[in-house]
Computed example of a mutant assay.
Amino acid sequence: MDELVFETVIIEWRGPAPFLFAPVPDEHIGAIRYAAMTESYGWGVVPVVATIGDTLFATSLFPREGGYLLPVKVAVQKSEQVGVGDRIAVRMRVGRA
């Protein structure tokens, strides 16, 4: 799978920590689902490597209402000085680091 590049706005969702997430735009859902057929841990959780600003990190997408949420870890929030409501640019690929 090629790297996905998109802009999105950080939201808060009271689920598992870290509570802040970057919704993945609908246009990328099909490609993620296809890649997840071989990369997923199960339960719909999909491992990814993402970059926000200058910060590269590994995490897993959370399935939510037919789409995916990218967790924005506290370390990423601090290093990039981003929070709820901020528009961010994301580079992401499905798979393990």
Rank of each mutant, 00 (worst) to 15 (best):
Met1Lys: 05
Met1Cys: 09
Asp2Ser: 14
Glu3Ala: 11
Leu4Asp: 00
Val5Cys: 10
Phe6Val: 13
Thr8Glu: 12
Val9Trp: 06
Ile10Thr: 07
Ile10Asp: 04
Ile11Arg: 05
Glu12Tyr: 13
Trp13Tyr: 11
Arg14Cys: 00
Arg14Glu: 14
Gly15Phe: 09
Pro16Leu: 15
Pro16Gly: 13
Ala17His: 10
Ala17Trp: 09
Ala17Lys: 08
Phe19Ser: 10
Phe19Lys: 10
Phe21Ala: 04
Phe21Glu: 05
Phe21Ile: 06
Ala22Ser: 10
Pro23Ser: 01
Val24Leu: 05
Val24Asp: 01
Pro25Thr: 07
Pro25His: 07
Pro25Phe: 06
Asp26Leu: 01
Asp26Thr: 09
His28Leu: 14
Ala31Ile: 13
Ala31Trp: 08
Ile32Cys: 05
Ile32Ser: 03
Arg33Leu: 05
Tyr34Val: 08
Ala36Gln: 04
Ala36Trp: 02
Ala36Met: 06
Thr38Val: 11
Tyr41Gln: 11
Tyr41Ile: 15
Gly42Ser: 07
Gly42Arg: 07
Gly42Gln: 07
Gly44Phe: 08
Gly44Lys: 03
Gly44Cys: 07
Val45Trp: 12
Val48Leu: 09
Thr51Cys: 09
Thr51Val: 15
Thr51Gln: 15
Thr51Tyr: 00
Thr51His: 01
Ile52Cys: 00
Ile52His: 02
Ile52Leu: 11
Asp54Ser: 15
Asp54Thr: 12
Asp54Lys: 11
Asp54Val: 12
Asp54Leu: 13
Thr55Met: 09
Leu56His: 14
Leu56Asp: 14
Leu56Pro: 03
Glu65Lys: 13
Gly66Ser: 03
Gly66Asn: 04
Gly67Ile: 00
Gly67Ala: 11
Gly67Arg: 05
Tyr68Cys: 04
Tyr68Met: 02
Leu69Lys: 04
Leu70Gly: 01
Leu70Glu: 03
Leu70Pro: 02
Leu70Lys: 01
Pro71Gly: 09
Pro71Thr: 02
Pro71Ser: 02
Pro71Val: 05
Val72Arg: 01
Lys73Tyr: 00
Lys73Ile: 05
Lys73Asp: 01
Ala75Cys: 00
Ala75His: 10
Glu80Asp: 07
Gln81Thr: 15
Val82Asp: 02
Gly83Met: 02
Gly83Asn: 12
Val84Ile: 15
Val84His: 14
Gly85Gln: 07
Asp86Ser: 09
Asp86Phe: 00
Asp86Ala: 13
Asp86Lys: 07
Arg87Glu: 13
Arg87Trp: 00
Ile88Phe: 04
Ile88Asn: 02
Ala89Asn: 15
Ala89Val: 13
Val90His: 03
Arg91Thr: 13
Met92Arg: 00
Arg93Tyr: 00
Arg93Gln: 12
Val94Phe: 07
Val94Lys: 08
Ala97Glu: 14
Ala97Ile: 11
